[in-house]
Amino acid sequence: MRKTTHLILWLLIAVLTLTACQPAAAPEATPEPVKQFRVAVVMPSQINDLAFSQSMYDALNVIKSEMGAENFDFVYSENMFVVDEAAAAIRDYASQGYNLVIAHGSQYGSSLVEIAPDFPNTSFAWGTTVDTFTDKGITNVFAYEARSEQGGYVNGVIAAMMTQSNVIGVVGPIETGDAKLYVDGFKAGVAATKPEVVVNVNWIGSFSDVALASEAAQTHINAGADMLTGTAQMVVGAVGVAKEKGVLWFGTQSNQTSLAPEIVVASQVYKWDVVLRQIIDLVKAGTLGGTAFQIDLANKGEVIEYNPAFTLPAEVGQAAGAAIEGISNGSIKALP
């Protein structure tokens, strides 16, 4: 017992000394007169995940190179998959006077509802969602979402036209959110193009189990699939199998061509800069929230990027183009 008491005492003293040594809370560098637009972003996975977080990181870099480093800067916290840690980060950024704080994950919503009212002069953006909390009297939150089913549909059209075996395999994490939308769109695209094609889906119950994703791809190939697609970070395992077996692959969220130039046909890529540009303009003009944005094929926030090393048959390219056109003008519905 005495040991424990001593431990407590020691810790207290150490902590107090250390905090006392702290230079009295250095006044958070008061924003200099320079009109630099400062963004902070909190992301659930890593900036190089070839998926959701990377798409935002890349977009911020695009904006930075457009506006110039003297006019735009951003900081990030990655791997914030734990919500209360993310909440602490969001609050901390807001209190440091960033112009825009981006909570890049739908799980951060309930934290944002609590934080945003405390910082009425800071603009927040979060996604993927459509909820800006205006019904809760909050005016400084933007929302954004990706219509991932649209690119999924286009990928589905291409895959359906190219399959010889009429079996296509899909590897997904859990059947929710962005992954579910993408897969539903993909299935719709296949069904609209070639109804007789079978789409097998494996939800492997994890965003990180690369080995199981790879085995799921093997299983699809054993079941006759000659086209594969999949979504979330762990699909790199499936891409590897596709490469080894010479089966074609369709990517989403980021351009996955670099993983296997031989077999990646096309990737749906998110261009969040389309949304960011609008939000930044609104914030500069004094509007701090209230609008829900989306990226889709029509506003070029979603782009189908083809692998230049892969020659797509002309009629397939035309069909894909027609699908993009149709979805953009509303004549094709990407979800059944």
Binding site: S106, T128, V130, I174, E175, T176
Partner: peptide, 8 residues
């Protein structure tokens, strides 16, 4: 309802 299917 929104069709966003976020797992929460």
């Amino acid at each position: 309802e929104n069709g966003s299917f976020i797992p929460q």
